[in-house]
């Protein structure tokens, strides 16, 4: 069995969790202040995920950039690959928050969506 301290980053409270796990699953957590910690810690051990936020240039619009994000958390090991993919993307036409900028990025099933308007 493995054990260690993991900071839960679901919310800013940032609980420092004492976790125990084996090869297959999370066995116990201690010091969590809410029930969301279980899912996060389990993911963090077996399949860590992050939301990627960045910007892409706009074609038109008052602002040179629109901010974008992965609509869902994506596997952590893909974060830099997603940045590489987005490095050559330019948003077409006027963009509104929520618009899909890249569909199904790197086959993750997750869209890259705008989080701000282009003007």
């Amino acid at each position: 069995m493995n054990e260690g301290n993991i900071v839960c980053t679901v919310c800013p409270t940032s609980c420092l969790i004492d976790a125990k796990w084996d090869e297959k699953e999370l066995i116990s957590i201690d010091r969590a202040q809410c029930k969301l910690a279980w899912g996060y810690i389990s993911d963090e051990i077996f399949d860590p995920k992050r939301v990627v936020t960045t910007t892409v240039p706009t074609e038109t619009g008052k602002n040179p950039l629109v901010s974008v994000k992965t609509a869902e958390p994506v596997p952590k090991h893909l974060v830099l690959d997603i940045m590489d993919t987005l490095a050559v993307v330019q948003a077409k036409g006027p963009v509104n928050a929520g618009d899909v900028i890249v569909a199904d990025v790197l086959g993750t099933g997750v869209n890259i969506i705008a989080t701000s308007n282009s003007d």
């Binding site: 679901v10 919310c11 800013p12 939301v51 936020t53 960045t54 910007t55 901010s67 994000k69 928050a97 989080t115 701000s116």
Partner: peptide, 19 residues
């Protein structure tokens, strides 16, 4: 502040700053 994590206390969901 284009990163996410805003609103978890007030709205129970993480938004980016512009959102």
């Amino acid at each position: 502040c284009i990163h996410d994590g805003f609103g978890t206390k007030l709205m129970g969901e993480a938004f980016t700053g512009p959102e």
